[in-house]
Each structure stands twice: as C-alpha cells, then as structure tokens.
C-alpha cells in the first residue's frame, strides 16, 4: 500500500505548494536584473529607495531565462539585460515600451581564478591548459557566456578547451563554481571581481568578443507605472552612473 499512500501524499503536498501570485503594489517596481549586474543593482536600488520612497523588488538570473519568462507574461516592469538583442526583440514584440531602450552599461569580460598567479595578464594560461575545469556561463542564455566562447574561438583554443568547459546557468553560478575552486578558472563579468583583490585575472581585450552593450527596457506591465518610469530615469542619473562605473563598467 506504500505506493498508493506516497502517491496521494505527494499529490496533496503539491497542491499545498501551488504558488499564489503577488502583484506589484503601487510604489513597487519589479525589476529583472541580469546576474552580472547584481551588486550595482542592489546599490542603485538602495539609493533610489532612499530618494523616492518607492520600493524595488529585484529578481536575478540569466538574460535568456528572463527573456523566456517575459514572453510568457512574467510581471516584470523593467528588464536590465546583459545584451542589446533581447530588449530589442522585446520591443519588436510589443512586450517592451517603444523608445524606452537604452544602454545602461558596457560590460567587460574577465578570465578569473580564485588562485593567485594562475591567470596571467595575457591569458596565456588558456594555451598552457594546466587545469581540469574552466567555467563559463551558458552561452545560449548569458551574453558573458557567449563572449567567453567567442574569445576562446578567437584564440583558436575552443576545440582544445571544450572537454574542460563546465557551464553555469547564469554568470552568478559560474562565479560560484570558480570562487569555490571547483573550477580552477573561468570567464566572468569584470564587475563581479572588480572590487576584490582575490585570486588572479585577465581583463579580456574588447577585440576578442562582440561588444557587450547592456540595455535596459521598460516593459509593458510598467508602461503606466510612475515608479517604474522614475526607476528608469534614475538609472540614467549621474548618481546611478557613478555606482555603475565603480564596478568597472563603461557608460557613455
């Protein structure tokens, strides 16, 4: 009878766990943030909340995952993507507000290791190959993962390194793989390691990969929300730009 009992119990437990959607309250801004921008986004939200009294509710993940979710009606009001492609598509699909797109940061790719001295400042370690695992973000979902693949291809090392590549579902998980030492090194966003002196890194030259122009877009659910519009405006303010630059991003 165990089978039946456990089946019924499972069904019952599942029913208990059905999520109840919580719509954004007035004065709340729901923001989907690409994982590489996690730390500056928190700082910007704190400054924004202090200034306006509005509350920022943030979700962090890969740009690809957010794009799929927004397509399926996720209630995000603002999307801070790690690329230009996904916001452009959302605008074309009328899921984003026309004309609200802009580049909030230009990202830099970094090859990073938690071990001091492992990564040299020219990336020659990739050729030496004296490691078992190199972590990247899933290239299909995370622009920094794509940039990592482009870099390895440009160096002519992609085929040689392929068996050693482990993929994180977002750049944040990739960072975790490297930080814990499970992967000896890997490609992350410069912003994730910019403020620390731990380990060793190589800032990959811009010529090695397609420009990472990270765009923000106001999404349809936030089109008429003053708080969402205020948040977008704040993102362009000198105060926010200063925070963004402090993580190693370029802003034009």
């Amino acid at each position: 009878m165990f089978t039946r009992t456990i089946l019924f119990r499972l069904v019952y437990l599942t029913a208990l766990c059905l999520p109840l959607g919580t719509p954004a309250l007035a004065g709340d801004v729901q923001v989907a943030v690409a994982a590489n921008f996690t730390e500056p986004a928190k700082e910007i939200a704190a400054a924004f909340e202090k200034k306006t009294g509005d509350h920022v509710v943030m979700s962090f993940g890969s740009s690809g995952a957010f794009y799929s979710q927004i397509q399926q009606g996720a209630p995000f009001e603002v999307f801070l993507s790690a690329d230009a492609e996904r916001p452009t598509r959302l605008e074309a699909e009328n899921l984003g507000v026309k004309g609200s797109r802009f580049v909030y940061a230009y990202g830099t790719l970094a090859l990073w290791s938690a071990t001091p001295g492992l990564v040299d400042n020219k990336g020659a370690v990739l050729k030496k190959g004296n490691f078992q695992h190199i972590a990247i973000a899933d290239p299909a979902a995370a622009p920094y993962g794509l940039a990592a693949v482009e870099t390895m291809k440009k160096l002519g090392l992609y085929d040689a390194l392929s068996p050693k590549i482990v993929r994180g579902s977002s750049i944040a998980q990739t960072y975790g793989f490297i930080d814990s030492g499970s992967a000896e090194l890997g490609f992350v966003a410069l912003s994730q390691v910019y403020k620390q002196n731990k380990g060793s890194r190589w800032n990959v030259p811009a010529a090695f990969y397609t420009l990472i122009d990270q765009q923000a877009i106001l999404l349809a659910p936030g089109a008429n929300d003053p708080a969402a519009k205020a948040y977008i405006a704040f993102l362009k303010s000198p105060e926010a730009v200063k925070i963004i630059k402090s993580y190693g991003y370029a802003v034009h």
């Binding site: 695992h133 979902a141 590549i165 482990v166 993929r167 579902s169 998980q173 992967a183």
Partner: peptide
C-alpha cells in the same frame, strides 16, 4: 544536477537540464 553538474554534454548534461536550456534558448 543543476547545482553540481556543470552541464557538460555527454557527461553531466541530463534531459531535465537540456530542457531548461532549450527553453532558455527558445
């Protein structure tokens, strides 16, 4: 698997992970 696998094709990439990636890739 998502947390410890690293999604290596042929080694640690299982069907459930593959589906997750396919959805992300649309």
């Amino acid at each position: 698997v998502l947390m410890i696998g690293g999604a290596i094709p042929g080694k640690t990439e299982v069907v459930s992970i593959r589906i997750w990636q396919l959805v992300e890739q649309l």
